[in-house]
Design a protein around this nucleic acid. Sequence first.
DNA 1: ACTAAGCGGATATTGTCAATCCGTTTCTTG
DNA 2: CAAGAAACGGATTGACAATATCCGCTTAGT
Lengths: 217, 217
Amino acid sequence: MTDDTGRSLRKDAARNRERLLAAARELFAQRGLDVTLNDIAHHAGVGVGTAYRRFANKEEVIDALFEEGLRQVAAVADEALADTDAWNGLVSYLERSMELQFGDRGLNEIMNNPALGDERVSDARTRIAPLIEKLVARAKEQGLVRADLDQTDIVFAQVGLSAIMDRSRAVEPDLYRRYLTLFLDGIRADRPEVTPLPTPALTAEQTHTAMTAGRRR
Amino acid sequence: MTDDTGRSLRKDAARNRERLLAAARELFAQRGLDVTLNDIAHHAGVGVGTAYRRFANKEEVIDALFEEGLRQVAAVADEALADTDAWNGLVSYLERSMELQFGDRGLNEIMNNPALGDERVSDARTRIAPLIEKLVARAKEQGLVRADLDQTDIVFAQVGLSAIMDRSRAVEPDLYRRYLTLFLDGIRADRPEVTPLPTPALTAEQTHTAMTAGRRR
DNA sequence: ACTAAGCGGATATTGTCAATCCGTTTCTTG
DNA sequence: CAAGAAACGGATTGACAATATCCGCTTAGT
């Protein structure tokens, strides 16, 4: 194991580096990107000083982990393109990439809340956008989605869906699937029958809870 | 003009109180709820001290203005119910309430970002939820929307759409209408033809800009 | 067994806001 | 129009949160 400068690390140092990354992965996924490097250190069972000797700052930790998430999303898009049925491909990309973002608040935030990501987001776009473009183009050629659908619509759908996901996470984690289905019914070229919704709507009380359970700030 | 305790205010004090409210209205609408009471004071052309003499804290200013926004949304819902065509009513409620939220980031945040609102949100729910319920019930009875649509779906649609609105505001303010239309096409009971989309999709570059133009933090 | 590398965590630093205080100015009314 | 009450402005204080550093102690490795 080597550090950023390439020199090899002492055994305990290497172990701690891994522990820190594991803790960061877990905390980012669970609580989002604004956990403190101190939090991460303690969760990893090491002191803050150690964290700061391994990583110059939080950014560096995020960078180290972001690549992972990005690869996962790209992989999902690739698999989706491998499906010869363009509609299934599109649906599966949306479902699975939303699942990834769902399981990982940190990834979700990097993807959606720029300011934190900027060049990271650029990365994501240049790697993933072309795949989405193909996914959409195929589906359009085959006449499966409405002709006026654009590749960028997929991105904004994800923006909207993650907002819903964030809101309902605590009450009914799967709720976003319901709205994904509605979206899909909205972009199909023709829709003789409605697609059954995978998740029941929240009750009025549950909705109220979801809207009242604040997080941020 | 009287202050909170009912005693009458000196003329300049009354004037400043109005100025402060106007400035708050404007800044909340423009920049959201986390503007500082100092910001508001300066924008109103008065000192911070003055602001704090008129209002105990920011909460109080928000309260004074929230009622306004809430009334507007309720009015829109009422008008929507007055339309005998249940579909038009539903569409018009969504369009117009989104317009209100669009024009007013502060309202948007109160409606969507609890933590700040809590009991205010409760207020909103108890006043507006029943109206939405009727709107949806009518449309279902008339067989205009899919049978599995629920009143709470309207709320979550608004959550998703405001996220999109927030993201695209700087690049193409009207973009959310595009996704509203897709949503509407998704909830119609049957949809022989697709509804033309009111706003062109963003280009890839515009999308990138929108995703990269951070605000928060 | 010696030393460079690593460790922990108290502490300094920085930034952001809310809120107060007080010397000065402006109303009001007798 | 004089005088005191009311209001004003804005520098300043205080609270807090998060980042990052420093340094005396511990440990790996030869």
